[in-house]
Amino acid sequence: MSVTALPMGGGHTGPGSDFAADAAVPPMLKTSGPSLWRRAKNRLAAVAVVAAVAVTAIPLVSMIWTAVARGSQRLDLALFTNSMYGVVGQGGGLLHALTGTVLITAATATISVPLGLAAAIYLTEYGRGQLAALTRRAVDVMVSIPSIVAGLAAYALFSMILGPGTRSGLAGAVALSIIMVPVVVRSSEEVLAMVPGDLREAGLALGAPRYRVIRRIVLPTALPGLTSGAVLGVARIIGETAPLLLVAGFTDAMNYNLADGRMATLPVFIYSQWSSKGLDAAAYDQRAWAGALVLMALVVVLQVLARALPPQIAKLRRNR
């Protein structure tokens, strides 16, 4: 019998109770707890789970460690004040790439947020029937577009309008928007759906037209969540490399004009530091890792921001 078989101070009190239990209970339970095999399996599963955590954590730790160890050697002022213009070997910086990333990301957000938000509002507030179903399906399809295909699409668009071989920051922003729009739609839709229905009804009951209820009641209520969704969308696209490699191209020089000419970005900077090494290979590697460090730091800041944002704004509103 399960427990009685274990050493037990002051057990076996009732006359014959131990024997009786043993006699009556079928052998399948007549073990001290679960069988060795069952316990071994249980332990094995626990070990596997711990191993899975280790397997997940190791690459991340290794990556951060490498980026810090190799990148920090070049984490100097020059990195943030210089471009790579005319640099072969040591020195140089990623100012041009950082500028490009900021410009292209800003442009992407400017395109994607209104577009995605509009679609989300349509889906949650008006969306009934076939058009809405079709739109939902379209969002699903867009989510599954590989990023390099988004780059190809933007390239195709710009070469149709401006002739083949065009590369510009704007084209990069368009490519990234193809990736970011569905992200914004999804997250905004989720947030908007969480706005309580009676809030809308209260507004409508006051005789306000629908669009005004949305603008005055629904959007302000959902604002923190929407903002956090947009920031997460930016975090998602800021590290995209492949589409930018295709359509924004690479340059060693500064370029502040989104509409004209190649524009460097951080991910492409990292890639090109690795792919086209000059004479002093170590200097290029260091720059690549320094770039990786800066890029990862940017992503972490964005993620923390997205997480910290909602409660703070919610608190503000409560205090008002």
Binding site: A57, G239, A242, W274, M296, V299, Q303
Partner: peptide
């Protein structure tokens, strides 16, 4: 904590993964 680690891993740019795979792995 684990969820945060996963989010972080998901957010690492693919070019950094490439660099890591090439140079470390």
């Amino acid at each position: 904590l684990l969820a945060a680690v996963l989010d972080l891993l998901a957010a690492v740019p693919s070019v950094v993964f490439g660099l890591w795979g090439l140079m470390i792995l």
